[in-house]
Nucleic acid binder design. Structure first.
Lengths: 199, 199
DNA sequence: TTCAAATTAGGTCACTTGTCCTAATTTGAG
DNA sequence: CTCAAATTAGGACAAGTGACCTAATTTGAA
């Protein structure tokens, strides 16, 4: 006798609005209008706005986890998997161009609001960091896998931010190409190191 | 008979609060409390909150312009000047760690608010882009100076975002070192190209 | 079908927001 | 000093916010 559909609709719409308009700039009224329920109805599903934020972060964690896991079991090489990550900038380009990176912008907003959910949002970055680290380990870079993961995360964050600021499609494409060049060099180095038997 | 001091105090405090708490999350009351004037007094200096934002963006443009110009006339090499830009991540690290990049986060917030001042804020990035482009030209890279400028801007944006997210000092230091390595490689390439052109 | 639980609609509440008004005070040119 | 202009304080105002309540309706297990 539990209606999960309405709850999921609220979270889904909130997820979208928090991304497009920001957490603080999104009101209960905004969400209610899109979900087509009355404002007062919220209290039955979520006690506070922070509870909705919590659910949205959880949803994003699940969604990204699912995506990354799918990439991992589709049996491609670590190199191709990392390329899939880089290609988010293109495949999700239309939205990034307009609203930036969903993870980076949320983290940044919550940091400024000094919001309690700041740490939870941070786990979104940690998810990608750990996943990328695993790919670099698979690429034969156990020693500096984490630094490489952070570096690539950083590069894609920067590209997303400037894509949003300048709206320049050529720029993103160029940065994506640079990242793939870098990735090939990283892979080549690790092959060389394996041959030398030296780090 | 014009009191510019109060106006400048308002803009200065607003600049700081917009950075630390975000534009929307900063209220007239917040600013008034720090400037130590009454709330109603604002209307005499700024008709709307958007007018204050306009003034803050103008101030940031002037401040950054002054800083970049100073670096340019201090008679150092283009390489050293670009290093000064990279080193912002260290010299301004305490604030970036807590609040992110003042330019990137403002641009991102205004994009989500769909705010009219979005374009004005964009000029802050353009300022750095043009300045960096000039430095790369001075480094002998006329052909791809703009792409190099955007690339470095992108790298430093990403580093600032992840510094804010993970608060990891070692990470920023590493990224700063990577950027300087990259810069040296770029300079070396341009020397090589110059050598090829003039045998 | 029955009926208690789940869900919903509609509204109230106290509070904050940006905007704007008016009256008092301060300032400085003549 | 004089006095009009500049500046300031204090508050009013409507609109919007998140939180919360109650009563009506819907749902589905027994």
């Amino acid at each position: 006798m539990v209606n999960r559909a309405t709850r999921e609709a609220i979270v889904s719409v909130a997820d979208d609005l928090f991304y497009r308009k920001g957490f603080e700039h999104t009101s209960f009224a905004d969400i209610a209008a899109l979900v087509k329920i009355s404002r007062g109805n919220f209290y039955h599903h979520f006690k506070t706005k922070d509870d909705i934020l919590e659910a949205v972060i959880q949803k994003r964690l699940t969604d990204r986890h699912t995506m990354l896991e799918r990439w991992e079991v589709e049996g491609r090489t670590a190199m191709e998997r990392i390329c899939s990550f880089i290609d988010i900038l293109i495949s999700n380009g239309d939205k990034i161009k307009l609203y930036g990176c969903p993870i980076g912008t949320l983290t940044s907003e919550l940091a400024k609001l000094n919001h309690a959910a700041r740490e939870d949002a941070g786990r979104l970055f940690m998810l990608f960091r750990a996943w990328l680290r695993r790919q670099f380990v698979a690429l034969g870079r156990e020693a500096d896998a984490d630094a490489l993961a952070m570096h690539l995360l950083s590069r894609s964050q920067g590209a997303a931010t400037l894509f949003n600021a300048f709206q320049d499609q050529d720029f993103v494409q160029r940065e994506v190409d640079y990242m793939k060049d870098w990735l090939r060099a990283v892979a080549a180095e690790s092959f060389k190191a394996a041959g030398d038997q030296q780090p």
